[in-house]
């Protein structure tokens, strides 16, 4: 009889410590990335003080803005145990479409952004429909979409390029302007990030995305509309990538057919480095954004320190492997720890 009386309290304790264990692990991930970021910035600053002058900080934020945005969109897809490799091409297509649309006109930034979002949503809709309703593996679908969208972009551009001179000043102002010394672009990314994070945490459909990634079978039995949610995730990722395309135009003014070529892999790296599990169900957009910030800051730091840019790729690669290894080890350890705690 004593056993039955003692058990609940022991279990409750195990439960409490299990929760704090899990909390610690996830917070540890975000804290350690933030820590690495601070160390990197400090180190670079000491070696080259100009790194953190007004313009330096602005450049850091501007460089990160678009990647952070894409990482937010990608996280929403990865959390459902899928992937979207087409985002780089979508950015390229959307930037070019927006450029074509505004060149020689005086359309304002709002219209440009809406067009970019619409282009991206259309791409996301196709990928999402194939993945969710067609039941084709996400890797294949979005790889195919990457090439198709790129092809459309090349075919349309025919070697043509959009020049800053053709883009209305109001649009360019969005890319270069700032409020209280902070450029618009990072502010926009931050807003999208905060809203997405809040949505994922506090709305049923947001939690269902995690449920799908954690266990598709359980999600099915719980009556989660899996196909609709996955489709939604792709449309969101597409919309965000399309929006990023219009911001690309605003920032650089000059647009060629293969803008953002190869960015999809950087985005996936950022997301994984930021602690979003590639097998789904785990991770936050905050982490993914930190991952994106870390990757772009490494790039900026290396160029300030005049290190060969070849190292940037190598370091990103090493970081990615490290992040995945840590995920795996933590996962195994935590499962074992939780199992031992609940063993009776």
């Amino acid at each position: 009889m004593t056993a039955t009386i003692e058990k609940p309290t022991a279990q409750a304790e195990a439960g409490r410590s299990a929760r704090s264990l899990v909390d610690t692990v996830f917070r540890a991930r975000e804290i350690s990335i933030a820590g690495a970021l601070v160390l990197l910035v400090l180190f670079t600053w000491i070696a080259e003080p100009r790194f953190l002058n007004d313009q330096g900080v602005k450049d850091l934020l501007l460089n990160a803005a678009i990647l952070v945005l894409l990482a937010v969109g990608q996280s929403v897809v990865v959390v459902t145990r899928n992937i979207d490799l087409s985002v780089g091409s979508v950015v390229g297509l959307s930037a070019f479409a927006c450029g074509k649309f505004v060149s020689g006109t005086d359309h304002g930034p709002l219209l440009v952004a809406l067009l970019g979002i619409a282009v991206g949503m259309a791409c996301g809709l196709v990928s999402g429909a194939l993945v969710s309703f067609g039941k084709v593996p996400a890797l294949v679908v979005t790889l195919g979409m990457l090439y198709i969208i790129q092809g459309i972009d090349y075919w349309w551009a025919e070697g043509e390029q959009i020049n800053a001179a053709d883009v209305p000043q109001s649009v360019l102002d969005l890319g270069s302007g700032s409020v209280l010394g902070i450029p618009y672009l990072p502010l926009i990314s931050f807003a999208v990030l905060a809203v997405t994070a809040y949505f994922l945490r506090s709305y049923r459909s947001g939690r269902e995305l995690y449920a799908i990634g954690s266990s598709p079978e359980a999600a099915r039995l719980a009556g989660v509309p899996i196909r609709r949610r996955v489709l939604g995730a792709y449309v969101f990722s597409g919309a965000v990538a399309g929006f990023a395309g219009s911001l690309w135009l605003a920032r650089f003014g000059t647009v060629v057919a293969d803008n953002a070529h190869g960015w999809e892999l950087t985005v996936v790296s950022a997301v994984v480095v930021g602690g979003v599990a590639i097998v789904g169900g785990v991770g936050t957009v905050w982490g993914a954004a930190l991952g994106a910030l870390l990757l772009t800051t490494i790039g900026s730091a290396l160029s300030v320190l005049k290190v060969d840019s070849f190292w940037e790729d190598a370091i990103s690669g090493a970081l990615l492997l490290a992040a995945i290894s840590v995920d795996r080890i933590v996962n195994v350890r935590m499962t074992r720890a939780l199992r031992k705690r609940s063993a009776r």
């Binding site: 709305y203 269902e208 995690y210 449920a211 954690s214 169900g281």
Partner: peptide, 27 residues
């Protein structure tokens, strides 16, 4: 069949969470 990554509470109420204003989940 549970969601291993989600809390027990979320496992129980997935898709049926009590809500407060604006459709937000009342954690």
């Amino acid at each position: 069949t549970l969601f291993p990554d989600l809390s027990i509470a979320e496992n129980i109420f997935m898709g049926r969470q009590p809500r407060r204003g604006l459709g937000r989940i009342d954690h």
